[in-house]
């Protein structure tokens, strides 16, 4: 989900420190739950749309991002419509009754869910995976004191990111090689299909282990010996705009707190 969705750009949101973006999403997810009436939901929606607008990401990409979860949103809506029994009855179809409270609850909960997805989509569309990795390493840095291998985890993440296209290529090559030997990946009975998948996975795994070993040797040869005493080529810089946007979230939280019922 996070990978390969970055839309290059130079907007305010793109230029934000990825740490600020992560924090923003984190706090946002926390305060979404404060909204519980029309006014608060309206404010929250307006704020989210403002961020989307600032990111200058084409709306089409945003739609693509939320498409997979639209069904879940719809399902959540229907579930609440039928399960909530509050307020006056609007419709009566046989044994089923739709209440006013149900409609309201359905809209609120599915809107909450939608906003959630929108803000995370915004993050992934405007931030490269490696920026996210750097941000995580920096934000979780203090955990090193509790012997949590933050640097190693971040390095693992960045190496995985670097090897995803390589492994995709390799998968394709092996599939072609096996297809040339008569393996059918797309048809045939289930048993045959499973066998086909195995014929793909086994070489893929063997190659990956060999890669991993060679990579480890190459890293050691280049002087890698853990995070201790390492300097960094890529740096994150916290700018004014980062503080401003986080303050905006704080104000949003205060507003929601005051206006909720």
């Amino acid at each position: 989900m996070i990978i390969g969705r970055y839309v290059p750009g130079n907007s305010v949101i793109h230029r934000m420190d990825p740490r600020a973006k992560l924090l923003l999403v984190f706090f946002y997810v926390g305060i979404v739950f404060l909204a519980n009436n029309g006014v608060t939901y309206a404010i929250l929606t307006a704020f989210t749309l403002l961020l989307l607008f600032l990111s200058q990401v084409p709306f089409l990409f945003v739609l693509k991002g939320i498409k997979p979860v639209l069904w879940v949103v719809l399902f959540t809506f229907l579930l609440h419509v039928f399960m909530t029994k509050e307020g006056s009855v609007l419709y009566q179809i046989g044994p089923f009754a739709i209440y006013e409270g149900g409609i309201q609850q359905g809209i609120f909960i599915s809107l909450r869910f939608l906003l959630f997805v929108l803000i995370t989509t915004l993050l992934t569309l405007s931030t490269t995976p490696i920026e996210v990795t750097d941000a995580i390493e920096s934000l979780f840095g203090p955990l090193k004191r509790f012997r949590i291998p933050v640097h190693e985890l971040a390095l693992m993440m960045s190496i995985s990111l670097r090897f995803i296209p390589t492994l995709m290529d390799e998968t394709e090559k092996i599939m072609k090689a096996q297809a040339a030997r008569g393996v059918d990946f797309y048809g045939g009975p289930l048993g045959e299909r499973m066998k086909a998948i195995v014929s793909l996975l086994v070489p893929l795994f063997i190659h990956s282990f060999k890669r991993a070993e060679e990579l480890a040797i190459a890293m050691e040869a280049r002087g890698y010996r853990g995070g201790e005493g390492r300097t960094k080529y890529r740096v994150l810089t916290w700018k004014g705009i980062d503080t401003v946007l986080l303050l905006a979230v704080a104000i949003l939280a205060a507003a929601l707190f005051l206006l909720r019922s």
Partner: peptide, 26 residues
């Protein structure tokens, strides 16, 4: 193998990898 020794996500990151390991100032 050209692929199995490329650590960085971009060319500059990869060239810098050894320097980072040796604690060279930025």
């Amino acid at each position: 193998n050209p692929d199995n020794q490329f650590v960085g996500t971009t060319v500059q990151d990869d060239i810098a990898f050894g320097l980072e390991n040796n604690g060279v100032p930025r």
